[in-house]
């Protein structure tokens, strides 16, 4: 491309992903068509939306001037249920997750055990909390016990999966060194694995505690108790100032728990 003393006065950046111009046009066209179809399918009822703007304003006002007092009894009850089910579910979830997580680590257990544990993990992860809650409410009746069951079950998939991955990533040399001393399977677990994964397990538990609290605000919608039930009622009655208060409480608790768990993790290290 030696050009003597004259150089081009025009330059365009070469395309990064699709080099072929035709393909680019096809992909861009397809994206545009999809966008038009998708937006068209929304089927927006503008009169209803305009009508909603006033209510939206009422909600924003309610959020800015939250009313903690007039429904305080309900809020208090919901909060207590949420917090208790969050804590108990996390504890139970972790207790069950540990053996399942160990069983789901390829480097520690025989294949059949591995398969069973990984199946449990997959089932727990693929079902969403709210769907589990629907079934558990149908089985155990309304109230926080169903919520507790839901959150425990959902915690298992989360913690056990990450724990199993963590164990699989453990330093093999340390495991072999302990094994070479003639240690039993339990001793390998205690001396080689536990020190390596313990800090992470604590971190995961704290993180899950946080998630469980957030979820506890959701599953109440289908009758599993907690602050979600209170919130649902408030929104149904169009009491936006109470709803705003509840949401603010949720946000503050989540912030505090994030702050606290990062502090605790630093403290434990």
């Amino acid at each position: 491309m030696s050009l003597g003393t004259t150089y081009p006065t025009h330059w365009r950046r070469p395309p990064r992903m699709l080099r072929d111009r035709r393909w680019r046009l096809v992909v861009q066209g397809a994206a545009l068509v999809y966008l038009v179809l998708a937006v068209g399918s929304l089927d927006i009822e503008w009169s209803r939306v305009v009508e909603g703007l006033a209510r939206g304003q009422a909600f924003v006002e309610g959020f800015l001037q939250p009313d903690f007092t007039s429904r305080w009894g309900d809020i208090r009850q919901g909060l207590i249920e949420s917090l208790t089910m969050t804590l108990t579910a996390t504890v139970v979830g972790v207790l069950i997750s540990v053996p399942i997580g160990i069983g789901g680590a390829r480097n520690l257990v025989p294949a059949p055990v591995y398969a069973v544990c990984r199946t449990i993990i997959a089932v727990s992860r693929s079902l969403q909390e709210i769907i589990i809650a629907i079934f558990l409410v149908a089985m155990f009746g309304f109230g926080p016990l169903a919520g507790f069951m839901t959150l425990s079950f959902a915690s298992i998939g989360f913690i056990a999966k990450l724990l199993a991955e963590d164990i699989e990533e453990c330093d093999v040399h340390q495991i072999e060194a302990v094994r070479a001393t003639g240690a039993s399977w339990w001793q390998v677990l205690h001396y080689a694995i536990q020190p390596q994964v313990m800090p992470r397990l604590i971190g995961l538990s704290m993180y899950r505690l946080d998630i469980n609290f957030r979820e506890s605000a959701v599953i109440g919608i289908v009758g599993a108790g907690g602050i979600g039930a209170t919130l649902n009622t408030a929104i149904d009655r169009y009491e936006y100032d109470s709803a705003g208060a509840i949401l603010l409480i949720v946000i503050v608790i989540v912030m505090l728990s994030e702050y606290g768990s990062s502090y605790l993790r630093r403290f434990l290290q």
């Binding site: 927006i44 909603g52 605000a217």
Partner: peptide, 27 residues
């Protein structure tokens, strides 16, 4: 933080109450 703390289902609950049921509330 506010957006992260509130589950999409709760946002949906609010929006359905405000702009009515339908896909728009979900989006």
């Amino acid at each position: 933080v506010a957006s992260r703390s509130i589950n999409s289902l709760i946002w949906a609950l609010l929006l359905v109450a405000i702009i009515g049921p339908g896909l728009l509330a979900g989006v």
